[in-house]
């Protein structure tokens, strides 16, 4: 007679084999499929971080909704920030299919236990930052995210398809803001160049540490969650920026940036990884401010959420009594 424990082992082996097979065929894993714990944990971490990034990422741009310099720009910016809230919502839903609740993810964020993209810890002192964020930050996000449309976990991949379609619009509006500024007055051109100077390096940091210092990358690539290495994506991004910077007439703030024909890649200056780690550790210009705003909105909204829950409970009780 086989002990139940052994049966479980046999079943697990079969499930693992099915999972490995799906990954090998580059098929999708769906919420009801068996998956290794580590795969589930990696995805929960990555998707919730991604959702938090969308939500925190609304703040640096919402800073300019009230002061946008034309009604058309105000409308576009408002639509963009609202898209980001929508992206956060799809991503929280995708993470929920893995067995974590939104309230728990929110608590992790506001208690400072979860990460979000460090780029949003930089501030937006001028209108041109709306252009630079769209062009550089959303541009880098697109390079990172388009391959995620093929991520092996179905709900994540599908959420990313919707998100990428909107992100490309976001990048375009950022580029257009900069183009308009660069074709404008001297003060506007200076504003645009200054914003590009401030956002260029942080946007390159968005691809993460160099490949030889990126501990989680290999496993994520084996699981078909990640498709390209950090350095490859960074190269592609710079390749996309260089011709666009020429059209804009802005200078990318790296005197060593040059195409290396022999190696078929861009040479560039060393990224300041000390700054990256400092911001990651919570010592960026706006880390505390971003979390404070999110925490206040959540806490000050508690009475409203409680009212909605209580109203729903009363309605359900009324319906039950009537039945």
């Amino acid at each position: 007679m086989t002990a139940p424990a052994d049966l479980t082992v046999v079943e697990n082996e079969a499930a693992q084999a099915r999972f490995d097979d799906l990954i090998a065929q580059d098929s999708r894993i769906e919420p009801r499929d068996w998956m290794p714990d580590a795969y589930r944990k990696t995805l929960i971490r990555q998707i919730s971080q991604h959702a938090h990034s969308e939500i925190i990422g609304m703040q640096p741009e919402s800073n300019w909704i009230s002061r946008a310099p034309s009604l058309k720009r105000k409308a576009i910016l408002m639509a963009k920030v609202q898209d980001e809230a929508g992206h956060g919502l799809y991503l929280y839903s995708a993470a929920q299919t893995l067995g974590i609740g939104r309230e728990e993810m929110t608590q992790q964020l506001i208690e400072g236990r979860a990460r979000y993209s460090s780029i949003f810890n930089y501030t937006t002192p001028t209108w041109a930052d709306m252009g630079a964020i769209g062009w550089l930050v959303d541009g880098a996000a697109i390079c990172n995210q388009v391959p995620l449309c093929r991520a092996s976990y179905g709900p994540y991949g599908r959420a990313m398809v919707r998100i990428c379609k909107e992100e490309s619009f976001h990048q375009r509006q950022g580029f257009e803001i900069l183009l308009e500024l660069m074709q404008g007055t001297e003060a506007q051109r200076e504003m645009a160049q200054d914003a590009v100077n401030r956002w260029y390096w942080p946007s390159l940091m968005m691809f993460g540490p160099p490949d030889d210092e990126s501990p989680n990358s290999a496993q994520s690539m084996a699981w078909n969650i990640k498709r390209f290495s950090n350095d490859d994506l960074r190269q592609r991004f710079v390749g996309m920026l260089v011709p666009q910077a020429e059209v804009l007439g802005v200078t990318l703030p790296d005197p060593n940036l040059a195409w290396n024909e022999a190696e078929q890649r861009y040479d560039m200056s060393e990224i300041d990884w000390h700054e990256f780690h400092e911001v990651l550790a919570g010592r960026g210009p706006a880390n505390a401010e971003r979390l404070r705003r999110r925490r206040e909105a959540h806490e000050e909204g508690a009475w409203v959420r409680e009212a909605a829950a209580e109203y729903a409970r009363k309605q359900a009780a009324k319906a039950a009594a009537a039945a």
């Binding site: 703040q59 919402s62 009230s66 909105a297 909204g301 959420r305």
Partner: peptide
């Protein structure tokens, strides 16, 4: 527009 990022729920 001021409610964006400050609303009681997303």
């Amino acid at each position: 527009g001021d409610w964006i990022t400050r609303a009681p729920e997303l």
